[in-house]
């Protein structure tokens, strides 16, 4: 297999368009430089090493360039950082620790958000039951029935008032997860220089 074929075979982790851009660049470079496969190895390292650097570099850029405003998807960011970690030359135990940390953060906050929603949801549900129960006992005890109906409606009112607050709390949580994951990503896969060891 030629150097370039070998390189291409090792770039599979990249998106299609990235592979074709990189291959075009290196094909032209090799042609202009009249590089033999042996010279290519001495200039660029083995195809496998070059491919690994290109893949790592791509995912590091992806992880670093996630814009500040784009806080919609902490999970998407976590995925990119995990890919970058796996592609980067970081020691495997370190990478596993960081991935576990990201996983723990995501799970913790998902559980928090979930319990908030369930808590509020059950209040709402209880309030509806209260109103229905109140209506049902109305024939037996007007005062008791009215009490349950009023209590249920009051809780529903509170529920409607609180809902946007809870939702913004969930959104806030999501934002913090995003910020934490991004911070971890910057500390682990972010780089200061583009120089490599070659």
């Amino acid at each position: 297999m030629s150097y370039l074929q070998d390189l291409q075979a090792n770039l599979k982790a990249l998106p299609e368009s990235e592979i074709s851009d990189a291959m075009l660049y290196y094909e032209q470079y090799f042609y202009e430089g009249q590089l033999t496969d042996g010279q290519a190895v001495s200039e660029f390292g083995t195809p496998k090493n070059l491919a690994r650097r290109l893949v790592a570099d791509y995912y590091m850029d992806e992880a670093r360039d996630v814009p500040e405003e784009n806080q919609k998807s902490p999970l998407g960011l976590a995925k990119i950082i995990i890919l970058a970690l796996l592609a980067s030359p970081i020691l495997i135990p370190v990478a596993i620790t960081v991935i576990a940390l990201i996983f723990a953060i995501v799970v913790t906050f998902a559980a928090l958000a979930f319990s908030l929603i369930v808590l509020l949801g059950s209040f709402g549900f209880a309030a509806v039951i209260c109103v229905i129960g109140g209506i049902l006992v109305l024939t037996q005890s007007v005062l008791g029935g009215l009490f349950y109906i009023a209590a249920g409606i009051a809780v529903i009112g509170g529920f409607i008032l609180l809902w946007p607050l809870i939702m913004s709390m969930v959104k806030g949580l999501k934002h913090w997860v995003f910020v934490m994951i991004r911070w971890i990503g910057k500390k682990t896969v972010g780089r200061k220089g583009v120089q490599d060891d070659a």
């Binding site: 851009d21 990189a22 660049y25 290196y26 470079y29 200039e43 660029f44 390292g45 070059l50 650097r53 290109l54 570099d57 791509y58 850029d61 360039d65 583009v194 120089q195 490599d196 070659a198």
Partner: peptide, 14 residues
Amino acid sequence: SESTMYPVLRRLQK
């Protein structure tokens, strides 16, 4: 090094 240039160009283009 030769292999430094492509990532630089790719990033500048992006």
